[in-house]
């Protein structure tokens, strides 16, 4: 059974990318409605578990945005996020989940245009991949 609609759970860090998303709003840039935002203090707070939970709970994609390398409000949280997501994606592949369903990128507080661009790209990627299939029959 395939779902028609899909959602992209989006984690934004409080200091840069959340403001970047706000900036996209102030500039009235169109962003896909299936981008659903959860605010965290730092991309370093995003546990790989959140990503897996999002998939389990029905998301077709997960987008994680943090401050650009070197600009993290907490200095180095984004580097940890990067390492975790790279290892997670490797693991997800073994679970049959396409690596492109997870994207980690950087958006600064002033980059409204960049936020909108990434959001739209992500939606296009997921549209192409299709919604994440339901789990195989368990029996």
């Amino acid at each position: 059974m395939k779902k028609e609609k899909f959602t992209i759970v989006t984690f934004l860090c409080n200091w840069c990318s959340y403001e970047g998303a706000d900036r996209a709003g102030s500039a009235r840039l169109n962003c896909p409605a299936n981008i659903r935002v959860i605010r965290v203090m730092c991309s370093g707070r995003v546990e790989p578990q959140f990503v897996i939970q999002a998939f389990r709970d029905g998301a077709s994609g997960v987008l994680i945005l943090g401050c650009h390398p070197g600009d993290c409000h907490y200095k180095k949280g984004n580097y940890k996020a990067r390492r975790r997501i790279i290892l997670l994606k490797k693991t997800l592949k073994q679970f049959g989940i396409e690596q492109d369903r997870v994207r980690l990128d950087w958006v600064s507080a002033s980059e409204g245009t960049r936020f909108a661009k990434i959001a739209n790209e992500m939606a296009d990627t997921i549209k192409q991949l299709g919604p994440l299939s339901e789990l195989e029959a368990l029996n």
Binding site: V40, M41, C42, R45, Y74, G77
Partner: peptide, 10 residues
């Protein structure tokens, strides 16, 4: 502590 949560994730 400033509450970034990177230790929590780890």
């Amino acid at each position: 502590c400033r509450g970034c949560g990177t230790c929590v994730a780890a």
